[in-house]
């Protein structure tokens, strides 16, 4: 791709809790079809960034344009239209505990489409099939493991065929093998369905395995300190702190 096609544009974005600024005037693009990772140390505001991008919080300043429309200023139907363009997987899955997996995936279909009852079940089942949970359609979320819950949450996020998927810490609370399986799934979905992924994580192995491009936030300057391919940043970054992060070194090791 010579000129990458930008699908999300974040411009002059500032986030604050009360008077405390967490992110200060940053801008970046997410390109169509890439796996884009927002990373940074604990408390740097990467989850905050994600929650603003999906419209849960209102930023202190700036705009977040998703496929041409600013989610910050949109209201009512226009906002619903933007919400339909993406799906979200929350850190703990956030499946609705009183519904089976199939009902969870079906819910967005019930609310947004007029296809026949049975067709809804079929479409929902195909989404579960995509994440390898077809045989668990009738289970309740509490009856399956944490990794499966996250996969089911991805299936629900994909229910309306969004172009963009936001994932909040997909590897949190998972063992390395389950986490790697999830990475494989993400890569497969990105490749076969041309879904753009925006992922918040600080899990290095999974960043190397899935990320096309990363931005790195730093809580000390509250800005983006690095943009690029993870392997490039590891080997060639000018910033010693960025190199440290990608090589998984402690701060003290640098000082001595």
């Amino acid at each position: 791709m010579t000129t990458p096609d930008s699908i999300i544009q974040v411009r002059n974005f500032t986030a604050a809790y009360g008077n405390v600024k967490v992110i200060d005037d940053i801008s970046f693009d997410v390109y169509r079809g890439e796996v884009f990772v927002i990373l940074g140390g604990s408390g740097c505001g990467k989850s905050t960034m994600l929650k603003h991008m999906i419209g849960l919080y209102e930023p202190a300043g700036g705009s977040i344009v998703i496929e041409g429309d600013d989610i910050v200023t949109a209201e009512g139907e226009a906002r619903r239209a933007i919400l339909r363009r993406f799906g979200v997987m929350y850190q703990l899955g956030a499946l609705f505990g009183s519904m089976t997996l199939l009902q969870n995936v079906r819910l967005p279909l019930e609310e947004y489409t007029n296809i026949p009852e049975e067709a809804m079940n079929l479409v929902a089942l195909t989404k579960l099939d995509l994440v390898g949970l077809k045989d668990f359609a009738g289970h309740m979320p509490a009856e399956i493991s944490g990794g499966m819950q996250k996969r089911a949450a991805i299936a629900r996020a994909m229910a309306l065929d969004p172009k963009i998927l936001f994932l909040d810490e997909p590897s949190a609370g998972l063992d390395p093998i389950t986490s790697a399986e999830l990475d494989t799934l993400i890569k497969r979905l990105a490749r076969t369905l041309q879904i753009t992924f925006v992922i918040v994580t600080h899990d290095l192995p999974s960043i190397y395995s899935i990320a096309d491009r990363v931005i790195m936030l730093d809580k000390r300057v509250r800005k983006i300190v690095a943009v690029g391919r993870p392997a490039d940043l590891r080997d060639n970054s000018e910033d010693p702190w960025v190199r440290q992060f990608f090589n998984r070194e402690a701060e003290a090791a640098q000082a001595s």
């Binding site: 919400l83 979200v88 703990l92 956030a94 499946l95 505990g97 819910l107």
Partner: peptide, 17 residues
């Protein structure tokens, strides 16, 4: 409250519900 803590309420919001 439990749904709020589990981010299920957030999930509803981003599903446009």
């Amino acid at each position: 409250g439990t749904m709020k803590v589990n981010e299920e309420v957030s999930a509803l919001v981003t599903l446009g519900l």
